[in-house]
């Protein structure tokens, strides 16, 4: 491996839109950085703000939450809640000493493989610029692992 910083990034994707967009990017062989790993949930509304805090405090360098576009939620309004929650969380992160840019909320419909690729690429670049998330060192990377 090169010495270049390779961030470790987590993405939550909803089953109906953004996960399907990720699949579509795959089917279209759209190339993107390898840094982002996806956890599938049924709706972006399932993503607890605690998940993001947990990820960042254990040293994950960035978290993406991707849902359906507003108005296209499979469950009608699940993503409205996601939006509200993450607007608040984003502000809180700053108070916790975490750069809010390490969290990004975005939307990709099932037909937007290209948009998904764009988001992944952009976000990876952002996190590379921000450098490693040192919060885990602050809490003790090992301690986090043991718990």
């Amino acid at each position: 491996m090169t010495d270049e910083f390779e961030p470790n990034i987590l993405a939550f994707c909803c089953n109906w839109c953004s996960y399907a967009a990720a699949d579509l990017a795959g089917i279209g062989r759209m190339q993107m950085p390898t840094n982002v790993k996806v956890i599938r949930v049924m709706c972006s509304g399932r993503v607890k703000p605690e998940f993001v805090i947990k990820a960042l405090s254990e040293g994950i360098d960035g978290v993406l939450v991707l849902g359906c576009h507003i108005g296209e939620c499979h469950y009608t309004t699940g993503n409205h809640r996601t939006k509200k929650r993450f607007e608040v969380l984003s502000r809180l992160l700053g108070h916790m000493g975490i750069d809010p840019r390490r969290l990004r909320l975005d939307w990709a419909s099932a037909s937007e493989g290209d948009r998904f690729t764009e988001i992944i690429t952009e976000f990876t670049d952002t996190i590379k610029e921000l450098g490693p998330n040192n919060l885990a060192d602050y809490y003790g990377r090992k301690a986090a692992r043991v718990s």
Binding site: N8, K37, M42, R46, F51, E58, I60, A136
Partner: peptide
Amino acid sequence: QRGYNDEQLLKMISALAE
């Protein structure tokens, strides 16, 4: 939620953090 409970998802996050 059955099949997507907090414990399961948190464990996935930790696994990735490692």
